[in-house]
């Protein structure tokens, strides 16, 4: 009987793992199957054409813009906030409240952020429907992610490193820069990767703040269309599943490439210490 229970549990565990991998493979497989026929250099590097047959280069550029701008703002702000909360702030009611707030922020549906961005950045700050409005909205979306993961990464740095450094007569700031942050780097980086995924995957909030102009953006103040928004619109407007799937392939490849790049950088950073 005990043996049976054991096997049953093992079977369930195996089934859960299998199901997860299977779903992933089916989705990726289906998207590749549907979309791979459209993928060629013209499709990726070509300009958009409203009559069909054009490329998605403007959307790729727009997507990269949003990633870069939001991360350039969110990463330093998020890391500074996390360092303050974890290393400097007196652990009390206020800090608990800030933590609770950041945790709650991660759970809010992105359309809400989109509405806020549309009112605040687009209208109140008169930035218009633009890449910058969308990027700032995305910054708010990923900020709590970066804060949480950085805090967790800082927590894993052994207290003995801190003590060792302080006992050698270095200041708190030196300890932070030379010992704590480098040790926490892999964790911080994984938070940034996670954020990149969220930015690339976001559509509702961008739709409301950057608009849908399907042309190469002239700058960060022009309205533009990211890959996910484009994919949504082509499915919605023309029911072109193949095209949407082809965009999906580009998105998947982009995310994979960024993950590899981040892991590579993280390894390089670690090696630099030795």
């Amino acid at each position: 009987m005990r043996k049976f229970k054991d096997n049953l549990l093992l079977g369930l565990l195996w089934f859960g793992a299998f199901l997860t991998v299977a779903i992933l493979l089916i989705i990726v497989g289906y998207i590749f199957y549907k979309g791979i026929g459209l993928i060629n250099l013209d499709f990726i590097f070509g300009d958009y054409s409203p009559v069909g047959g054009g490329g998605i280069w403007p959307m790729i550029i727009t997507t990269i813009y949003t990633i870069v701008i939001s991360l350039v703002i969110a990463t330093p702000v998020g890391i500074l906030a996390a360092v303050y909360l974890q290393e400097y702030a007196k652990q009390g009611k206020l800090v608990r409240m800030i933590r609770f707030a950041t945790e709650s922020l991660t759970g809010i549906p992105s359309i809400i952020y989109g509405l806020f961005g549309a009112v605040f950045f687009v209208t109140t700050l008169a930035m218009g429907m633009s890449i910058i409005s969308a990027s700032l909205t995305l910054t708010i979306i990923v900020l709590p992610v970066i804060i949480r993961t950085t805090e967790e990464a800082l927590k894993t740095v052994p207290a003995s490193y801190r003590e060792g450094s302080l006992a050698l007569g270095s200041t708190k700031l030196q300890t932070l820069y030379k010992v704590i942050l480098p040790s926490a780097m892999p964790g911080i980086l994984s938070g940034i990767i996670l954020s990149m995924g969220r930015i690339i995957g976001e559509s509702a909030a961008i739709f409301l703040t950057a608009g849908t102009v399907a042309a190469m953006p002239e700058g960060i103040f022009s309205s533009a269309r990211t890959l996910t928004v484009h994919s949504y619109l082509v499915t919605q407007e023309s029911g072109d599943i193949e095209l949407a799937a082809a965009i999906g392939i580009v998105l998947i490849v982009m995310i994979l490439a960024l993950n590899f790049a981040a892991t590579f950088i993280s390894k390089k950073l670690n090696k630099a210490d030795y």
Binding site: Y161, E163, G164
Partner: peptide
């Protein structure tokens, strides 16, 4: 004070750096 009064801890607590950088740290 801490530059004049050094400390060695219960468990070795070298930093994840090279031997050289550890000794040169202070």
């Amino acid at each position: 004070l801490r530059t004049k009064v050094g400390m060695v801890f219960q468990k070795p607590n070298l930093f994840p750096m090279s031997i050289y950088d550890n000794v040169a740290y202070g």
